[in-house]
């Protein structure tokens, strides 16, 4: 990787921290979704983010 910008040590670290927390969040979310699926018949539509451009 070739860094022409200084990404900032703090900025890098924060991303790793957020990623770690989000990872835990996703894990919890995923198991929560599993629990929910047990109790609901309707399956949620998978959200396609292909066209989620900013022009809402």
């Amino acid at each position: 990787m070739f860094l022409y910008l200084d990404p900032g040590s703090g900025s890098f670290l924060l991303q790793l921290l957020i990623a770690g927390l989000a990872g835990i969040g996703i894990a919890i979310g995923a198991s929560w979704a599993k629990v929910k699926r047990l109790f609901s018949k309707k399956k949620g539509e998978p959200k396609s983010d292909e066209e989620t451009d900013d022009d809402e």
Partner: peptide, 30 residues
């Protein structure tokens, strides 16, 4: 973010990272 910048202002990038990586999923999440 501002606090992290202040705390690690003098820290070399590699030291702040300590070999940790970020998955593509996590990057997308960010």
């Amino acid at each position: 973010h501002a606090r992290a910048q202040k705390k690690y202002a003098e820290a070399p990038l590699a030291e702040a990272r300590r070999g940790r990586t970020m998955s593509q999923e996590a990057l997308l999440g960010l």
